[in-house]
């Protein structure tokens, strides 16, 4: 009940901010369109990169939005006030997770629809799986955003966390250099970064008609990372502060 109210409240906040909605929905689609024109005439390269980006962009956007939203909750005093009410930490964390997860589903849905229909993206596997992995990755962005907001005192600082969290994952996820061609220590780092698994899962969907065991394992790793980030996020939410 409190969770439902919290989800509705967060979505209402979003609804009052049409510009943010537009950015959420349009930006990943525009970027994928950009990739389309960059790789015009090289459909293989476009398929590979656009597919990976369907995982990367939602993650990035949702990470940024969530960390700022949660930081505002912390700095505006509303978080402190909520902690004097019957709200539970999980109501808040799942409230943000579900509300922004829904926004992410719209975002991934639009981006995938445009990529498949207008830009001619082709994958051996189903588009539904692509969207599923894409949304899971967005939810991972939400969960990490909630966690990272605890380490920022200002929105300035929160924004700085984006390159810290996103860039290494993007560089090491196998998009620029295949993971099995990296130096051992880079591979080791890559192996503990969740985005490596979501990009691998998307690649699996691209290459195989049916869902593979590797893809399911990768998806479970990503969802496991979501749970770990949410649990750590809950630990950073303190009812009592100094």
């Amino acid at each position: 009940m409190i969770l439902v109210g919290t989800i509705r409240r967060i979505l209402s906040q979003l609804r009052h901010d049409p510009r943010t909605i537009a950015l959420i929905v349009v930006v990943p689609t525009l970027l994928i369109t950009l990739i389309y024109f960059m790789y015009e005439g090289r459909p293989g390269a476009f398929d590979r990169i656009a597919l990976s980006m369907l995982g990367v962009f939602p993650f990035t956007v949702m990470f940024l939005i969530t960390s700022i939203a949660m930081l505002r909750e912390r700095t505006s005093g509303t978080l402190e006030r909520l902690f004097t009410t019957p709200v539970g930490k999980l109501d808040l964390l799942f409230g943000y997770g579900v509300a922004f997860g829904l926004a992410a589903a719209v975002q991934a849905g639009v981006a995938a629809a445009v990529a498949y229909t207008l830009l001619g993206l082709t994958t051996a596997g189903s588009a539904g799986l692509v969207v599923l992995i894409s949304v899971s990755n967005a939810v991972l962005g939400v969960a990490l955003g909630l966690l990272c907001s605890a380490f920022a005192r200002t929105e300035f600082q929160a924004v700085q966390f984006m390159p810290v969290v996103v860039a290494p994952q993007l560089l090491l996820c196998g998009l620029f250099v295949r993971r099995d061609e990296m130096a051992g220590w880079l591979q080791a780092i890559s192996n503990v970064l969740p985005m490596s698994y979501s990009v691998e899962a998307l690649t699996e969907v691209g290459a195989h008609a049916d869902a593979t065991a590797t893809m399911w394992r990768d998806l479970i790793v990503v969802l496991g990372a979501v749970v770990v980030a949410l649990v750590l996020g809950a630990a950073t939410l303190r009812r009592r502060t100094v």
Binding site: M1, I2, G5, T6, R8, R9, S12, Q13, H16, D17, S76, G77, T78, E80, R81, L82, T85, P86, V87
Partner: peptide
Amino acid sequence: TQAPSVYADLTVRENARYFAGLY
């Protein structure tokens, strides 16, 4: 709290309804 701690991006009614829902 001393500084008004309500959601600035919600209407007065939406704020009050959210807090009412918590109880």
